[in-house]
């Protein structure tokens, strides 16, 4: 796996957070995934009071971006190109539930998948390209192809890419950084393998 080491990524699956160098944080599988994210937030010493107001997708995205930002440059001209399968369905169901009594505006605002791009942009003061795609399964070619064009167009200088899904109380998060065009080409063909590798 040494060939894969140069891809900076953060993966959140099965109540564990892993990076290229290995396991970063883990709790028992039985722990509620939302509590797991809260525990991770505390464990990594992240201080961002707004965290607790966010929905699940934004919390997971924020933690993953935070951990990546310690290793790579995430700045004003970092493009954010994300994708998932279930859009904001988890929060949609919560909002639908709240409609029975008091429809909550603070829940409603999270019923869009791209809100996490806004949260990450606020946290890291990014003002660059945003795109959120929905595909049945993780499709790195779609994300990389779009990222490649944005880099070639000088629309952004580097890209934070992500697969960020929350469905049936299960997180499937894979964020990675593309430093530039050369980096991007070297990642082709590797991402699915890294995404599928479990660190147990």
């Amino acid at each position: 796996m040494s060939k894969d080491q140069h891809i900076d990524f953060i993966k959140i699956q099965n109540n564990s957070i892993t990076a290229a160098e290995g396991l970063l944080f883990q709790t028992e599988k039985q722990i509620d995934p939302f509590k797991f994210l809260g525990d991770a937030y505390k464990f990594f010493g992240i201080t961002y009071p707004k965290f607790f107001k966010m929905d699940g997708l934004s919390k997971a995205g924020l933690i993953a971006a935070e951990l990546l930002s310690e290793k790579v440059s995430i700045e004003k001209n970092t493009g954010l190109i994300f994708s998932n399968s279930s859009s904001s369905l988890d929060t949609d169901l919560r909002f639908q539930d709240s409609m029975k009594s008091f429809a909550s505006p603070s829940v409603f605002v999270y019923t869009l998948p791209n809100i996490v791009l806004g949260e990450i942009s606020i946290r890291h003061q990014i003002q660059s390209e945003n795109a959120f795609f929905i595909s049945e399964k993780f499709d790195p070619a779609l994300i990389l192809d779009y990222a490649e064009i944005q880099l070639k167009n000088s629309a952004c200088e580097n890209v934070l890419c992500g697969w960020l899904n929350l469905h049936n109380n299960e997180y499937d998060v894979f964020l990675w950084h593309v430093a530039g065009l050369e980096d991007l080409q070297s990642q082709r063909g590797q991402l699915l393998k890294i995404y599928a590798t479990t660190h147990e």
Binding site: L80, P105, V109, I115, L117, G118, E119, S121, I122, H124, Q125, I126, Q127, S128, E129, N130, A131, A155
Partner: peptide, 11 residues
């Protein structure tokens, strides 16, 4: 076309 983010507020 160009997209940007306000990095200011989500709603």
């Amino acid at each position: 076309a160009v997209t940007t983010n306000d990095a200011n507020h989500i709603s």
